[in-house]
Simulated scan of single mutants.
Amino acid sequence: MGVLEDDKAEDILSIDLRGKSSVTDFMMIASGRSHRHVGAIADHVLRKLKETGMGKARAEGLEAGDWVLIDAGDVVLHIFRPEVRTFYNLERMWSVEPPQGADS
């Protein structure tokens, strides 16, 4: 998703869940450097989804900015602050190698 790169999201990972989950086909995980950065990335993703006709995407966690979940149906995006991402370790839960630098 180009908006993640444009907003300088870090350690972007896409996980193919087709056949593994009935909830979504793809999960994306990215990190922001701070509460404000996480919120800005999420806001831009939501605006881009609305512009492309996917305005029904739901978001949770925007107020706190530690972990924002955006559910766009076939794709679920998690945007974390690095410490929160390490704590929840979704990559491990789905048996996926984290991108280089994700544990730093």
Rank of each mutant, 00 (worst) to 15 (best):
L4P: 04
L4E: 01
L4G: 04
E5W: 07
E5L: 11
D7C: 14
I12N: 03
L13A: 12
S14H: 14
S14K: 15
L17P: 08
K20N: 09
S22W: 12
F26Q: 13
M27H: 04
M27T: 10
M28V: 08
I29F: 02
A30R: 03
A30P: 03
G32I: 01
G32E: 01
G32H: 10
R33N: 13
R33H: 13
S34E: 07
A40W: 00
I41A: 11
D43I: 12
V45F: 12
L46R: 06
R47E: 15
L49M: 11
L49A: 03
T52R: 15
T52V: 13
G53K: 13
K56H: 15
R58F: 11
R58P: 05
A59S: 13
A59K: 03
W67F: 08
V68G: 00
I70F: 04
D71L: 05
D71N: 01
G73R: 09
G73Q: 07
G73V: 06
G73P: 03
D74A: 04
D74H: 04
V75T: 11
H78N: 00
F80N: 00
P82I: 01
V84W: 02
R85E: 00
F87W: 10
F87A: 14
Y88R: 04
Y88D: 00
Y88F: 11
E91D: 15
R92M: 00
R92Q: 10
W94E: 08
W94K: 05
P98H: 00
P99G: 10
Q100M: 14
G101L: 02
S104T: 14
